[in-house]
Amino acid sequence: MPISTAPVVVLGYTLKSSSPSSATIKFYLHLADAANKPVLPAARSGTMTMTPTYGLYSGKFTPPYVVPANTQYFISFDNTGMSHPICTTANTRINYYWRPQNATTWNGTPTSFTQAWTFRVDTTQCPPSAAYSMYGAGCKGTGPGNGIPALSHTGLPQLGKSFTVDLNNARATAAALLVLGFSDKLWAALPLPFDLTPIGAPGCKLLASGETMGGLVTSATGTAKMTFLIPNISALGGLMLFNQFIVSDPTVNTLQVVLSNGGKMTLGQ
C-alpha cells in the first residue's frame, strides 16, 4: 500500500470477486520486514462473506489497525473457496507476493502482472498529537521575579479534554488579556511580530494575532490562568492557535502594558 507521512488507521478491505458458493473469505494486514516483504504472522485479520454473484465484497478489521507514519504495509487474502478476483488491465507491471496456504514464508520474489485486482483499502488518518510550545520573549514590568510576564501551560490541548494557559511574574491584581488567534505572522494588515517601541512600550512585541481575546485579573502574587475545554471534534485535529498575555502595568511605560512570551498550541490526540 502507499506509504503515508502520517499514521493511518486501516478500517477494512473491499475486493471485487465471487465464490462458487457462499463462503467466508479471510484477509490480512501485514507490516513490511527489512526486505520489504509482508511479515508473518499478520498484524490484523478480518473476514468477508462472498456469494456466486460477482461484485464488491467488504470486511472490517476488528479492531482497526494503526499503521505508523512512513511505514509500508500489505493486504493479503486467502483465495480458498473463491473465484479469481476481477482484474483490470494496468499500464505498468504490478508486483504481488504469494504463498501456499500453510507456508510460513512468501515466495522469493514478487510475481509481476499487467493486470490489477479491483480492490479498496478503507482508511482514515489519525489526528495529529496535541502539542504546545513557547516562542519569543516578553518585556519587563513590575511583577515579581524578573518582572517579565511568563506564559506557560498545564496539560496539552487534546480533543475532548481541558487545557490551561498559565501566567506568572505579572503585576499583582492587574487586568490582563489573553490574545488568541490563528497566526504568528499576520493580524489583519499588521505584520507579526509587531514592535510596540514606537507607540510607547520599549522592548515589547505583539507575537500573536488577536481574533479572540479573554479578560482576567491576576492574583495577589501575579499569577493567572485561563482554562479551555477542547471540543471532541476530529476535524479540529491539527488546528494551530497562537496566544500571548497582555498585562496592565501603568508605571512601566507610556503604553502602560507589558507582554508575555508567545505560545503555539496544536489541537490533537
Score class of each variant (00 low, 15 high):
Met1Asn: 10
Ile3Lys: 11
Ile3Glu: 15
Ile3Gly: 11
Ser4Cys: 01
Ser4Gly: 04
Ser4Arg: 00
Pro7Leu: 06
Val8Asn: 00
Val8Trp: 00
Gly12Ala: 04
Leu15Thr: 03
Lys16His: 05
Ser18Asn: 13
Ser22Gly: 03
Lys26Ala: 12
Leu29Met: 09
His30Ala: 06
Val39Pro: 03
Pro41His: 04
Ala42Pro: 12
Arg44Tyr: 03
Thr49Pro: 10
Pro52Ala: 14
Lys60Pro: 01
Thr62Ser: 14
Thr62Pro: 14
Val66Pro: 06
Pro68Ser: 07
Pro68Lys: 08
Phe74Arg: 03
Phe77Cys: 06
Thr80Trp: 02
Gly81Trp: 01
Met82Val: 09
Met82Arg: 04
Ile86Lys: 10
Ile86Glu: 11
Ile86Trp: 05
Thr88Gly: 06
Thr92Cys: 10
Ile94Trp: 07
Asn102Pro: 02
Thr104Asn: 04
Thr105Met: 05
Thr105Ile: 10
Trp106Glu: 05
Thr109Arg: 11
Thr114Trp: 01
Phe119Asp: 10
Arg120Gly: 10
Thr123Asn: 00
Thr124Val: 09
Gln125Gly: 00
Pro127Met: 13
Pro128Val: 15
Pro128Met: 14
Ser129Leu: 14
Ser133Pro: 05
Gly138Val: 04
Thr142Cys: 12
Gly145Ala: 07
Pro149Ser: 13
Pro149Glu: 11
Ala150Cys: 06
Thr154Pro: 07
Thr154Asp: 12
Leu156Met: 10
Gln158Pro: 01
Lys161Leu: 14
Phe163Pro: 06
Phe163Cys: 11
Asn168Met: 05
Ala170Met: 08
Ala172Pro: 06
Ala176Glu: 02
Ser183Ile: 01
Asp184Leu: 00
Lys185Met: 07
Ala188Gln: 01
Ala189Cys: 10
Pro191Gln: 07
Leu196Pro: 11
Leu196Asn: 03
Leu196Phe: 04
Leu196Lys: 00
Leu206Ser: 02
Leu207Phe: 02
Thr212Ile: 02
Met213Gln: 09
Leu216Pro: 07
Gly222Met: 09
Lys225Phe: 15
Leu229Ile: 13
Ala235Leu: 09
Ala235Val: 08
Leu239His: 04
Phe242Gly: 15
Ile246Ser: 09
Thr251Arg: 13
Val252Thr: 15
Gln256Tyr: 08
Val257Asn: 14
Leu259His: 01
Asn261Gly: 14
Lys264Cys: 12
Leu267Met: 08
Gly268Tyr: 00
